[in-house]
Design a protein around this nucleic acid. Structure first.
Ligand SMILES: [Mn+2]
Ligand SMILES: [Mn+2]
Ligand SMILES: [Mn+2]
Ligand SMILES: [Mn+2]
Lengths: 222, 222
DNA sequence: ATATAAAATTAGTCATGTCTAATTTCTATT
DNA sequence: AATAGAAATTAGACATGACTAATTTTATAT
């Protein structure tokens, strides 16, 4: 009953996608997330359904069974713990760790996650600000809200990113934005929902709606 | 030009097998080492030959090209560095680390080995006493000689194992033999080349020839 | 030199996981 | 209700890396 790399990636994708919208995940959505075709997704979902890791066919869309969700959370836990090790111990930067963790998350050993967890001092969040499931699979609420939901003029602090791709993180690096950076939304452009923001009380720059939806912040009073 | 897990395991197997005997490796030998059939080995060797990682067909047997050897050493380096991390940082024991490292060695990132190396303080040997290739691919001579080559009555110290399988290491654990343990060969049985040995100046036990060929020792004077 | 055994090779099959190209089934909109 | 477009599904192909069952080649012993 050991899972293949592909199976694990499907489970994780379903987990993340149904986490946001809370609903069942469509073939099309999964296909886009995994960069596979709909045909491939369907055949894998059949396989996962047979293994009782996924509920499908019912209406439209897939969801994880209890066992499937447990497996997915385990992968996410490993992924985020490895990211902490890569960043804190091996001195990899924000934009490098995700792709390496994407490989490390598939290393199997019953005790590995727990040993890592202990060695790292039971971290609560990974370097991108995402909560690390604990040994029992409990996940704390995500910390912070999307920058896109912030009011204009309020002093904000970056607590995480929604998108961990190296493309996005390299962009942030160029803008000198990291966890702890100060942001302020100066204005929203009605036309396309883009915005002008101020970074670390420095100069103003213009960013897209997509950008605003990829950063997690908290308000720091004011 | 990224290598698959299978390709990497073949390269590593050829490397280890040609290291001992210094000669080209036969299909049969490789098949046994990889627990695959001869037919499978041949088709993979053709593939690796086409990729110019292996020289084959010539006479009988396979050997690594310069590029292939570089790749193999890189995998061995990662394997052993990960073993050090698993043992020293994550507190895994002798017999657990090899199988996990077998997975970790296939994680790809150009800087990963070097970062690990630095974090671990540039270890020279892995927890089984095997030399870790340095950043340039240089490998120190293996430390110690086989227990099977020791004279009777000489005080010896365990410096490593030749066989890192959990089956063998669990056996050693039961015998309370680890790196640093004291051994003495009391007598060799002519009939089957088995031996009676003394462990840590304790009781005598009888072990097979295969056992004697799986332990690396140094003489400690006397 | 010849028979026998071992080793290498070829041919064909299979499981996985992907794809493309139909085809079918929904969903909207008029 | 009819119909265009989107989403899901099916059918068939393909790459990878294994396998089994011949067959051929090579080595060894008489
Ligand atoms: Mn990540
Ligand atoms: Mn992954
Ligand atoms: Mn090992
Ligand atoms: Mn391996």
């Amino acid at each position: 009953m050991t899972r293949t790399l592909s199976e694990e990636n499907y489970l994780k994708a379903i987990f993340h996608l149904s986490r946001n919208s809370k609903e069942k995940v469509s073939i099309t959505t999964l296909a886009a997330a995994l960069e596979n075709t709909a045909a491939s997704v369907i055949s894998m979902l059949k396989k996962l359904t047979a293994k009782e890791l996924v509920d499908y066919d019912k209406k439209k869309g897939a969801s994880l069974t209890t066992v499937g969700e447990k497996a997915a959370i385990d992968i996410v836990r490993k992924h985020r713990l490895w990211e902490v090790l890569l960043a804190e111990k091996l001195e990899f930067s924000w934009e490098e760790i995700h792709d390496i963790a994407e490989q490390l998350e598939h290393v199997h050993h019953p005790e590995l996650a727990d040993r890592l967890d202990k060695f790292l001092g039971f971290p609560q969040f990974d370097p991108h600000g995402h909560p690390i499931p604990d040994i029992k699979g409990n996940i704390s609420k995500i910390f912070g809200t999307l920058l896109s939901e912030s009011a204009v003029g309020v002093e904000l602090e970056v607590v995480g990113v929604k998108d961990s791709s190296s493309m996005f993180l390299n962009y942030l690096k160029k803008l000198d934005i990291k966890i702890g950076s100060k942001l302020k939304v100066e204005q929203i452009i009605d036309f396309d929902q883009s915005a002008v923001i101020k970074i670390n009380n420095g100069g103003d720059i213009s960013v897209s709606r997509k950008f605003l939806e990829s950063i997690l912040i908290t308000s720091t009073g004011n």
